[in-house]
Design a protein around this nucleic acid. Structure first.
Lengths: 344, 344
DNA sequence: TTGTAGGCGTTATCAC
DNA sequence: GTGATAACGCCTACAA
């Protein structure tokens, strides 16, 4: 805590040169401007002394704080478990450029926005949830902002995941395995406002079904998982043979219930869901899932925000980078159905 | 983004005084040193111009970055849902002192600790999980650190929750309601390493049982929830009438299963658990739970770390502030048993 | 009570 | 290729 940190002055003194020479030697931007031999000597000396540039002094001159504000609002998205991977990749990538993340519950911005704006060079908005006033101020001030994994009415850069596509390839996977009675299970609908991903996935599902000529088999299920399990156990003509489940939480509950009833997965019912996160691959059987490239998304978010900060003029505001999710195939859906065989 | 921000110089010019006078007027530490009338004029002018002190310039002189590192390691504690409340309160309290939180996955510290140390005035360690090397370096450098809600071998200040006490008052609540067959349900034990709270809560439970002369009724259940529900449904002499459940996740699963089987809660079995978080009070029936004062803990963490930073000498290292949880009584345990009535 | 001047650690400008 | 010197915005002895 109290060790005297060597400054550029100390290094200069040790090498018998001036501070400006040391500064030039240290900053690679001045390719020339200092003799190669001298530069090496200075670098060695700096290394030896454990010199580290004082970022505050640097920030003051460059007007760069090297800090990005990570905004999130409301409760932590507990169920949306890709949060951790995304932010982890984001912070790792930022660190490579010596940038760090400031923790910003959006309330902080509501209360004293100036103090926040003063401290950051830009924002990453998590999950795309944010109060309107905050968004508006960011846009007005023309602050760099990247929206990570969410939809929000803004002209900032957006990093998105193609939910529709994910549902489509998942449905197609079932179709390839010769399933025809494929349903989309979204669980009981308690409120009018569904998470936007519910609709997106439905679109992909319906598109795949239509393309396969299965429009008439489109079925959206809103049962409780207990009841649905009962229905599946009893079987019958209208009971689906494959289930695309909206949330992994719902999937886990249903699988547990089916297991209790002795329903075999995937033989009696093939199952797959979204978000490839723990404990999905530890269930019996492990669950097939649409995985979003969370790390990649975090990384790209970092690149985008840094790009905007570095060259504000050449930034393409309002653009969105969309990622294609992939299918993690596991036991729960691994059962090619033979359509010629009648199922009870 | 590009508006010229007024500096102390501008204010000085407008008032026709020197910068140092403005500085004195602005900093309340110089109670005297400037005429009251002049100070007011300067303050008014500063207000009018929308002056805000440049925190970087200030930080450079004062050697305070006004930034606290929030360290967390490994995966996000999905199940430990008090995270959000704690951090929210922490950041709100820090903001009042113009301090902000830097997001620090502990990996960042492993990779380039100097860069991190340079940027913060102290640390808050979340959930008490952290790599040894990191902890060691923090201690060596004598950096202020507060451990929030976790046990960790360190000499820093700790903010803890008295888990043992929580289990005790919960058990006593059952006892007051004339239960005698009170069990502690911890769920299937998959690995050798149990979360430390499992043991802590067990201690509190056993103590309360002993004090009530119920030592012989102590029962730790490690069934799956499906099987336990079956046992409860069938009833019998050895089946408990009250259940303290270690995790709210387990509780939710069990309650769902019991409901499916038509077991009445709390009449047939009284239930209570830990962590008073969503959706515990939305279940049917709402669940009694031991609530930890998450917000209070976050707030105190802020106070402690700020105190350490402000007056490093007077800090009581190694101290721990322990909070008493409280019982949130709800329907799931609200059923005074009459011991004279034989239960099936 | 007020102002002057030096310094915090760095980078940028312009002489040499 | 190198080195004074002036910023950056603020704080704080110390002098007036």
């Amino acid at each position: 805590m109290n060790k005297p940190v060597p400054t550029i002055k100390d290094i200069a003194a040790r090498c018998g040169v001036s501070v400006s020479t040391v500064s030039k030697a240290l900053n690679p931007q001045f390719r020339s401007g200092v003799r190669d031999k001298l530069r090496k000597r200075i670098l060695r000396e700096a290394e030896k002394a454990g010199y580290r540039p004082n970022w505050m002094a640097r920030a003051m001159i460059k007007r760069r704080k090297h800090i990005i504000g990570l905004i999130y609002s409301g409760d932590f998205p507990l169920q949306e478990g890709n949060f951790h991977e995304m932010v982890s990749a984001l912070s790792a990538e930022l660190q490579r450029a010596q940038y760090y993340l400031l923790f910003l519950p959006s309330r902080l911005l509501l209360e004293d926005s100036s103090a926040v704006f003063e401290r950051v060079d830009g924002f990453v908005l998590l999950n795309g949830k944010c109060e309107k006033e905050v968004l508006q101020e960011i846009e007005e001030r023309e602050f760099p902002m990247v929206v990570l994994n969410g939809t929000v009415p803004t002209t900032s850069i957006k990093i998105e995941n193609d939910d529709e596509y994910g549902a489509k390839i998942l449905t197609e996977h079932f179709i390839e395995n010769r399933h025809r009675k494929i349903a989309y299970y979204i669980g009981p609908v308690y409120s009018e406002k569904l998470h936007y991903s519910v609709k997106r996935r439905q679109l992909g599902y319906e598109e795949a079904m239509k393309q396969a000529g299965l429009s008439r088999n489109i079925q959206i299920i809103t049962d409780t998982y207990n009841h649905l399990a009962e229905v599946i156990e009893q079987g019958g003509k209208s009971v689906p043979t494959a289930l695309m489940i909206h949330s992994h939480v719902l999937a886990i509950n249903l699988v547990g219930e089916l297991a209790r009833r002795g329903v075999r997965i995937p033989q009696q019912i093939a199952i797959a869901t979204f978000n490839d996160i723990y404990p999905i691959d530890h269930l019996v059987p492990p669950l097939t899932a649409v995985a979003i490239p969370a790390e990649e998304m975090g990384k790209v978010a970092a690149e985008q925000i840094l790009g905007w900060i570095d060259t504000p003029d050449s930034v393409n505001k309002g653009q969105s980078v969309t990622f294609q999710p992939t299918l993690k195939l596991r036991k729960s859906s691994d059962y090619p159905l033979n359509p010629s065989v009648k199922r009870k």
